[in-house]
């Protein structure tokens, strides 16, 4: 099978994720979109690894997964605590940082 197809799929997934981050307001959905982008890049990395015949891409993919897992832990905790105080999961409601 042509490895390029995997790259097309990765690009499609990444675009879906990016549009979701830019367009959606729900923090959970936003979060899932970020995960989608990460996984899209994982897919691309693994594909490149296969194409070039070395393991660098796969190693990087593992790093990404670890970072993504850590991010989920911290991110979900933040979302939950924001939801508790503001009773909303919309990211537009938490704009206090702009002064």
């Amino acid at each position: 099978m042509n490895p390029a197809n995997y790259l097309y799929l990765a690009a499609l997934l990444f675009t879906i994720g990016a549009s979701g981050v830019l367009l959606r307001r729900n923090a959970i959905v936003l979060f899932m979109c970020v995960e989608l982008m990460l996984n899209a890049s994982n897919l691309a990395l693994v594909t490149f690894s296969r194409m070039h015949g070395n393991l660098d891409g796969q190693i990087l993919a593992f790093f990404t997964m670890v970072v993504a897992a850590a991010e989920v832990v911290v991110g979900l905790a933040i979302i939950v605590s924001i939801f508790r105080t503001r009773h909303s999961a919309s990211v537009d409601d938490s704009n206090l940082m702009k002064l």
């Binding site: 981050v21 307001r25 936003l30 537009d92 206090l96 940082m97 002064l99």
Partner: peptide
């Protein structure tokens, strides 16, 4: 210049993008 900082996550994401 401060006005650029809207406080909306999407705007920041867009500028990063």
């Amino acid at each position: 210049l401060r006005r650029i900082q809207t406080g909306y996550v999407r705007t920041y994401a867009l500028s990063m993008f």
